[in-house]
Design a protein around this nucleic acid. Sequence first.
DNA 1: CTGAAAGCGCTTACAG
DNA 2: CTGAAAGCGCTTACAG
Lengths: 339, 339
Amino acid sequence: MSGTASHTPVTISFIAESAGVSVPTVSKVINGRAGVAADTRSRVEALISEYGYRKPVVTRNNTMELVFDQLEHQWGLEIIRGVQRVAREQGIGVILTEFGPQSSTIRYWIDDTLARRPACLVSVAQLSDGERDQLRARGIPFVVFDPTGELPDDVPFVGATNWSGGRSATRHLIELGHRRIAMIGGPDAILCCRARLDGYRSAIEAAGLPIDPSLIVPTELTRDHGQAAALDLLRRPDRPTAVFCCNDLQALGVYQAARSLGLRIPADLSVVGFDDLPITSLADPPLTTVHQPLFDMAQAATELALTLGRGEKARQPRLELATTLTVRNSTAPPASRRR
Amino acid sequence: MSGTASHTPVTISFIAESAGVSVPTVSKVINGRAGVAADTRSRVEALISEYGYRKPVVTRNNTMELVFDQLEHQWGLEIIRGVQRVAREQGIGVILTEFGPQSSTIRYWIDDTLARRPACLVSVAQLSDGERDQLRARGIPFVVFDPTGELPDDVPFVGATNWSGGRSATRHLIELGHRRIAMIGGPDAILCCRARLDGYRSAIEAAGLPIDPSLIVPTELTRDHGQAAALDLLRRPDRPTAVFCCNDLQALGVYQAARSLGLRIPADLSVVGFDDLPITSLADPPLTTVHQPLFDMAQAATELALTLGRGEKARQPRLELATTLTVRNSTAPPASRRR
DNA sequence: CTGAAAGCGCTTACAG
DNA sequence: CTGAAAGCGCTTACAG
C-alpha cells in the first residue's frame, strides 16, 4: 500500500483527515513546532511516512542547470568545478544533466529542465535552435560553453582563444629553430579546429616560412588517429622535426608513433598539444601544450548566466578567454640546430 | 534601481498594484494565458522584468544532492555519471556540491543543502556525526559512497570489495610464478587501504608463501610516493619481481622508478595497480589493475538513496560491489621462469 | 494541547 | 479584456 505512488500529491489536509486532527496540528508536526502531544505527534508522523508526504519546496530559482552532451573524462570535471564554485558563492544549487546517447527510456532532458524553472542554464552542449527557442519562451537565460559551431549573434557564449593558442604554439616551435613543422588538425566542421589551424598558418607566414600543404593532416581528435597521421608524416624521407596537434589525445598518439619508429621526443621530434588535459603532465616526457582555462571559462560562463538570470544586462555576453602555452619537456631545438 | 536586491521577495500582488491591474491579470501574463490586452501585457511584462519577479517553484523533492569532499579528476566523473543516469530515469535533478578546501567566503554547504529539501543525498565525503544528525533531523536520507573510515551500523553505504580485490591481484601474480611480491600500501587510517593490504597478505598465505614484512611499504597514495617506495624496493639486491600497489597513481610511480633503473615492465618487473583509472589503459605498457565499478556503485548508491527518500525500506542498505581484475600488459611471468 | 480564524501567494472559473 | 469571488495548500497568531 505505502509503496504505491499516487498521482495526486498527498496534502497536509489529507494527512490531517487521516489522523483525525486539524490541519494546523499537522503543520506543527511537519515544521517541528512545539505544542503537540507526543502521541498525536507520533500518530501524525506515522501517517506522513506511510503516505510519503513531503513538504513542498517553494523556491525562487535558487538553482541553475549545467548541461553536458557527453561528460568527457578529461575536461568535464574542470568545468563542473568552475560552475560549482561561482554558483555556491551565490547560494545557487547546480543541477547537472548529461543527455548522452539518447535513449527513449530516458525522458527528454529539456522537459525536466524547463519544469525545474532554473534561474539560468550553462550548456556545454551545442543547443539546437528548437531548444534555444524553448528556453527563451520560458524566460530561462542560457550561455553556451565553448561552442563548437557557428552561433547566432544573440546567443551569449564563453570560449577560448583558439586561434591565438594555435599561433603561439607554432611560434614556440619556430623560435626553437624548427622549419618543417607539421600540423595534425581536427575535423573541419568543428570551429575551434579551424581556428587552431589558422593560428598555425598565421605563425608560419608571420615567420616568413612557406606553408607546405602536405604537412597539414586533418583527422579525428583521438589518440589512434593522431598515431596514424603521425606514422604517415614521420615515415617520409623529409619528415618534419616538429608536430603541432589539434588536441592532446592526438599528441599522445604521436608519442606512440614516434616510439614505434625509434624516434626520441624531444631529441628527434618536438610535439605540442592543445587543451592541457591532466594526463599530459604525467606523459613521458611531459607534454608541451596549449592550456585552455576551463576552470576560469566555467566561472565566467556561470557569472554571465547568473547575471542574465537576475534580469540584468551583461556588459560582455560573448567572450573568449586567453589560452596560454605551457612549456614542458616535449619540445626542444631540432637536432640539426643543436650540434 | 532595478538592480537592487530587495529582501522581501517581489509578489504578484505587488506587480499588480504597480501596474494598476488586478492580481489575476498579472497571473495570466506570467502563465502565458490568453485574455490580456497587448498593451496591458507589455506594461506588466515591463514591471516584471524591472522588479525581477520570478514565479516561485513549488516542487516536491524532485532533486537529490550529490556531495563531494574534493572532486578528483580521475574518478569524480564516473560517479557523477552513475548518479545522473539513475536520477534522470526517475525525473530527479542532481544538485552537485564540492565543498573542497573550506573557505569562510563560501557558505557552509549543509545549510544550502538542507534549505533545498532534497529527496535524498549521496555523499562521496565522509560526513561528520554532526552533519549526519542534521540530515536525520530534517528527514533527509543519505548514503555514503565508498566510505574511507568506520561508520556506525545504521549508516547506509555502498563500497567496493577491497579485500577481495587485493587478494585477486596478488593471486594473479602468484599464478604467473612470482614469489617475491612487494606491496606498496596506503595510509593505515584509510579503511580501504587496510583491506587491500589484508587481501594481499591473505593471498600470499593461501599460496603457502612466507610474508616478508620488508616487502610491505606503506606510503601516501600519490605517484611521487609510489616512485620513492619503488626505488627503495628495486635497489635491493634481492629485489621483488612484482609489485602490487594500493592505487594506480602509485603504480605509475613504479613505472617511473623502473624506467630510471633500466628495468623493463613486465619483462623485469610486473606491476599491478588498483582503481582502473582511465589513464591506466593509456600508460606504457597498459596497466594491469583492479577495477572498481564506480559507475555501478554510483548507480546502486543512488537507487538506494532514492528508495530511502521515498520512505521505503531498503532490502540491503549496506553493500559492497565486486571488484574485478583487469589484466593488461604490465604483468608477466618472472624472468627466472621464462627461460 | 488543540483547532477555528485569518492570512499568504497564487490560480481558476466565470460574470460583466 | 478585466477582475470579484472562490478556492488551493499552507502558516501564523491566538482563544479555549
